[in-house]
């Protein structure tokens, strides 16, 4: 609470009209610009086709809202299947990455084995390798391993960007847990595994949630690997499916496209809205370290 007061600082010295022009107005403009595409997605996905292509009517409002686009999307395309694929891949990849990251972060931060520092640095460097450099050789590997066009290709490759990030984040969290707790447990005869599962993990729950939801949204949003490694429609994820399957020739079904974009954004938006604080903590934590 004291902090809240502090951030007000000397703002009270600025007169109201001045605040309106220098603060409220710019914030409003930012908000309108940042949110307009979402408003536009919603409006378009409920608009009947005649209204979509009319240049005369006011485009910002819907005269006769319709669910036709959603109906088409859910019953005439493989959209539900893409949703399920994305969910499955994101959840499995997230849990796999978290498990590997917890062990790695604990080893680097607490076991301090020989070379732990260098390993930590290598993990950070791995975090800086962008997927657009890796996707071609990975495609060659995926092909040779016989994983092409399967969900395994995605489940196994997503950890390449999830593990470095999650490990880095968890290292920061583990560092903040007092070492004394661990020493007490060691004296009482606990094994390292017991210490990790009974002491460290319960204390690191906020860190696990941060890393988990961040990993989930990253996997949900992933595009280039899913585009490269998947070919058949029934294996596609939502972002790739919407972009590649809903566009047929030159006829754009804008309503269905927007409905697809909207529905595909909802799961991440829901997860995000429940855990905003954790998400922001994860994002800023990863940058600050």
């Amino acid at each position: 609470m004291a902090r809240e007061q502090d951030t007000q600082g000397m703002d009270y010295l600025v007169s109201l009209p001045r605040r309106v022009v220098t603060v409220y107005l710019p914030v409003l403009v930012f908000l309108v610009v940042l949110l307009f595409p979402f408003y536009w997605m919603v409006v378009t996905s409920f608009k009947p086709n005649e209204e979509l292509i009319s240049r005369e009517a006011n485009p910002f409002w819907i005269v006769a809202p319709t669910l036709a686009h959603f109906k088409r999307l859910l019953f005439q395309t493989e959209y539900p299947q893409w949703m399920w694929n994305t969910m499955l891949v994101a959840v499995v990849a997230t849990f796999l990455s978290l498990a590997a990251s917890v062990l790695a972060a604990y080893a680097i931060e607490r076991l301090r084995f020989r070379g732990a520092r260098e390993t930590g640095l290598a993990i950070f460097l791995a975090y800086l390798v962008p997927p657009s450099i890796l996707f071609i050789p990975l495609a060659a590997m995926v092909f040779r391993l016989g994983l092409f066009d399967t969900k395994f290709a995605l489940i196994l490759t997503y950890p390449t960007f999830l593990v470095p990030f999650a490990t880095w984040l968890l290292m920061g969290y583990f560092r903040s847990i007092p070492y004394e707790l661990e020493e007490c447990a060691l004296i009482d005869g606990a094994s390292r595994w017991q210490i990790l599962t009974k002491i460290i993990l319960p204390l690191a729950v906020p860190g696990l949630i941060s890393a988990g939801i961040f990993a989930f949204t990253l996997s949900w949003n992933e595009f280039i690997y899913a585009l490269t490694f998947i070919q058949s429609s029934e294996q596609k994820t939502v972002p790739v499916g919407v972009v590649t399957e809903l566009v047929e020739g030159d006829v754009y079904h804008w309503g269905a496209l927007m409905a697809g974009a909207l529905l595909g954004s909802v799961p991440v938006a829901i997860v995000y809205s429940f855990f905003v604080e954790y998400y922001v903590a994860g994002m800023t934590g990863a940058v600050k370290e």
């Binding site: 949110l35 595409p37 949003n221």
Partner: peptide, 30 residues
Amino acid sequence: LLNKHLPFKAFLRAVVLLPFIVPTALSAIA
């Protein structure tokens, strides 16, 4: 701007981040 004393600060911050969390491929369609 967001660091100034604003009403609904937490809500504003949450809303501002939306473009970043939504799948880029989908917002690009918009």
